[in-house]
Computed example of a mutant assay.
Amino acid sequence: MNKNLLGIALGGLLIASGLGASGYFIGQTMYNAKVAMNTAEVKGLAEQRVEADVANWSLSFSNQVKSKAEIPSLYQLAEKQQQEIVDILKANGFTDEEITVGLIDYSTYEYRDENQVVVEQDHDLTGTISLETTKIHEIAKVRAAVNKLIAKGYNISNHAPTYRFTKLNQIKPEMLKTATKNARIAANEFAENAGVKVGSIRTARQGNFSITDAGQEYGDLYKIEKDIRVVTSIEFYLTE
């Protein structure tokens, strides 16, 4: 084997980075030459920024009275508020298929004195409404519209929406192709410095695809933009 190759192999690891094709990136790439077998193992990275295609959002509303006799009227109020919220969702373009209206739950809390005698009660009715939609950019608008009900005295918990990317299988082939291409670019740099040529692939291993919120290392729920990443480990034959 070429003496240059042997010298580089004894050096252990070479890290390289650079921009990949079509907006992808070659991240930190590791070279590991196996001198005895005339091979080089390379890690190729492909990254792509995508937009979530499904959003989930939910809210809850509640009302409370002190007297059990007021529960029937409280239930009527809860139903009225529930319908008003649903009407807002529909006015903003969401359909019955996207909206899920939960049951109105009843709960009671008792307050006792030092003798364990009930001195007061709270009777609560809580309703939930959730939304699953592909209209991800309409969520912020409808959340703001619902929040206006707070000014009318509604007790609303407007939960943060979550965003998911569900079309990974559609972009997997192209990303794997890019990762493999980037690995060969890295191997060619190694081979050029070593005075040898890169041959065919001996082995290839695909790493797991990871999806994170854009710009984040962990977490994948709260941003519309996502970063998708995959690393492949490819062993190439080296020739004189």
Rank of each mutant, 00 (worst) to 15 (best):
Q82T: 13
N4V: 06
Q76E: 11
G7C: 08
E47Y: 09
I15S: 01
V54I: 15
A9Q: 08
K141G: 09
S73C: 05
T95I: 08
L149Q: 08
F25I: 12
K141C: 04
Y106N: 12
Q116V: 04
V146N: 00
A186F: 08
S58E: 10
N56K: 11
G199H: 07
V35C: 06
S130T: 14
A191M: 06
A191T: 09
L6E: 14
S62D: 12
V86K: 01
Y154M: 11
A91S: 14
V119W: 00
S58P: 14
R112I: 08
S62M: 08
S107H: 11
R112V: 14
V146M: 01
N4I: 03
G153C: 06
Y109G: 08
I136C: 09
I71T: 02
S17K: 11
A9C: 12
L103Q: 10
M37C: 03
A186G: 15
Y237W: 06
L131Q: 03
I15Q: 02
G127F: 01
A140T: 15
V54P: 04
Q116S: 13
A78M: 13
A214F: 13
P173V: 00
A9I: 09
I99H: 03
T100M: 03
E189Q: 11
V118K: 12
F190T: 08
G20W: 02
L59C: 04
K152S: 11
T134F: 04
I85C: 05
I136L: 10
A16E: 07
E41W: 06
E110N: 13
I15Y: 01
L77E: 05
K177P: 07
S67C: 07
N169E: 12
G219I: 04
A21R: 13
G11L: 08
G207Q: 02
T212M: 10
K135I: 03
N158R: 06
A214G: 06
A191G: 08
T134H: 12
N92G: 10
R184H: 07
V42E: 02
A52H: 06
A160N: 10
R112Y: 11
E79T: 14
T232E: 08
K177W: 00
S107N: 15
Q170C: 00
N32V: 11
V50G: 04
K66W: 01
A46T: 02
I85A: 11
K152T: 05
Y75W: 03
R164I: 13
D227H: 08
I26G: 12
F94C: 10
A78W: 00
K197I: 05
R229E: 04
K43G: 03
V231G: 01
K226R: 10
Y109T: 14
K152E: 10
I85S: 10
K197L: 09
Y237D: 12
K43R: 11
I234N: 07
Q83I: 07
Q116N: 15
A183H: 05
M30A: 08
R164T: 15
E174R: 11
A191H: 07
V50N: 06
I234H: 05
E70A: 15
Y109L: 05
I150H: 05
D87G: 12
S157C: 03
A194I: 05
Y222A: 07
I234Q: 04
S58C: 06
L5I: 14
R229D: 00
T239H: 08
